[in-house]
Design a binder for these strands. Structure first.
Lengths: 215, 215
DNA sequence: AACATGTCAACTGTCGACAGTTGGCAGTCT
DNA sequence: AGACTGCCAACTGTCGACAGTTGACATGTT
C-alpha cells in the first residue's frame, strides 16, 4: 500500500500531527524531529515534511530555518491579537447570518442551545465541543465559505492556546446566555445587534482565557 | 551553492512562482508541471513541491490529487465571496486604525492620498500599486498583525483575479474620494464611520471588478 | 457510428541517500 | 575562572530514482 489508499500519506500525517498538537500530546515549545516522527508514523521524511509545512501554514507549527518545526507557545499578547482577528471574522459572520439565515439554520441553532442548557442543568461541565458546535452552526447560517474557512483556522489556533487549560465552569452560564441572545438577534434579522452581541461574547471569552493563562 | 545562500531553494521558488502566477505569466486554468518547472528553475522536484504546496495554502494554486496544481480561474461568485471576507477584515482594520492611529500613521496616509491626487491631476492612470499602498498604510495604523497578514493574503487573491483586467480610469476619482474620507474618519478617531466608509469603498471596488469580469 | 475495453505514456506520490548547516562540547589560551 | 576556538554529532535541505495512478488514445465490439 505504498500509494494513496484513501488519502495521501502526507494527508494522513497532517491529521495525526494536528491531533497530537491540538491535544497537547506534542507540548507547546517542543520540536518536531523529522526522522523520529517519520519512523514513528511509518512513513518517509518527504510526506512528513509536507505535513509539517501544511500545519505551519495553519500556524499550528512555526518553522525555523535549519532548526526545524516547533509548537508555538503563546503569551497574553498573542491571545489578544488572535481574538482581534477572530472578532473581525465572527462579527461579520454574525451579521451575515442575521440577514441570510433560513428556518433550518434557526432550528439547528436552537438545537445546539437546547443541548447546552440540558447539559448545564444536569450539572455537567460545558464541553468546549458544544461551544464549537454553536459557532459552527452560526457560520453555516452565514453562508460565506471563505469567512467560515478562516474562522475554522483561527478557532483551531484558539484550541491550541487552550490546550492545557481546563474549562472554567463559572463562565458557562454567561456564554450560554450570549449564545441565546445571539440566536434571538439572528432570528430577528438584526445584523447590528448580532454583531454587537458576538463582539461582547468574544471579548468575554478572551478575558476568561487571559485570566486562565495568568494563573 | 547547493545550500541556502540567503533563502532556501523552496523559498526562492515560492517568490518566483508567486510572481509568475500573479502577473498571469502562468495563466488561470493552466497546470503547473512539476518536472518541467523544476528544470526551468534549475532545482529538484522536492523544493518545488514545497513551493507549490505553500502557494496552495495561500490559495494561489489549487491541488488536485494525482493531477497536480492548477491556477484557479474564478467566476463572479468567487469574487463576491472573496470580497465578503475582505470586507470583514478591512472594516475591522479601519475601526482599529481609527482608535489606534498615531501621528506618523496619519502622515503616511495623507502622503499616499497626496501622491494619488498628483497622479490623477497629471492625467496618469491610477496605478493599482497606490491603492495597495493606501490599504497597507491603513493596516499599519491598525496595528493588528494577524488581521494584516490575512488581508495581505486576501489582497493577493484579488490581484490574481484582477490579472488580465485593465484598470478602469472612470473609478479612480471615486476610489480617491473614498480614501480621503477614510483618512478623515481615522483622523477623527471615528471607528464606526471608518468602518462604514471602508465597507462602501470595497462594495464599489467589488462592483467594478464584477463589471470588468462581465465584459 | 457509438460505446466499451485494453494499453500506454506522462505525471504525481514516495522513498532512501548525500551535502551543508547549526548548536553544543571539549580543549586551550589569557 | 572566564572567554575563545576548533571539532563533532544531529538534523535539515536537497537530490535522483522507483512505484502507482490518471487520462487519453487506439482497438475491438454491438
Amino acid at each position: 500500500m505504498t500509494p494513496p489508499l484513501h488519502l495521501s500519506l502526507a494527508g494522513q500525517a497532517v491529521d495525526v500531527l494536528r491531533e497530537q498538537v491540538l491535544t497537547g500530546k506534542i507540548p507547546p515549545g517542543s520540536r518536531v524531529n523529522e526522522v523520529e516522527v517519520a519512523q514513528q508514523l511509518g512513513i518517509s521524511r518527504g510526506p512528513l515534511r509536507e505535513a509539517i509545512r501544511h500545519l505551519a501554514s495553519e500556524r499550528l507549527l512555526v518553522l525555523v530555518p535549519h532548526r526545524g518545526a516547533f509548537v508555538p507557545d503563546a503569551g497574553a499578547d498573542d491571545v489578544r491579537a488572535l481574538f482581534e482577528l477572530r472578532t473581525a471574522l465572527e462579527c461579520a459572520a454574525a451579521e451575515l447570518a442575521a440577514s441570510r439565515r433560513t428556518d433550518v439554520d434557526l432550528v439547528r441553532l436552537r438545537e445546539v442551545c437546547a443541548e447546552s442548557r440540558r447539559n448545564y442543568r444536569a450539572g455537567q461541565p460545558f464541553p468546549y465541543r458544544l461551544d464549537l458546535a454553536f459557532h459552527q452552526a452560526l457560520l453555516d447560517a452565514a453562508r460565506s465559505p471563505h469567512i467560515a474557512e478562516q474562522v475554522r483556522l483561527v478557532q483551531q489556533r484558539v484550541v491550541l492556546l487552550r490546550s492545557g487549560l481546563e474549562d472554567d465552569p463559572s463562565h458557562q452560564q454567561a456564554s450560554m446566555e450570549d449564545h441565546d441572545e445571539l440566536v434571538r438577534a439572528v432570528e430577528d434579522g438584526d445584523a447590528a445587534r448580532a454583531s454587537a452581541v458576538m463582539r461582547r461574547h468574544l471579548s468575554r471569552v478572551c478575558a476568561q482565557m487571559l485570566a486562565s493563562l495568568g494563573r
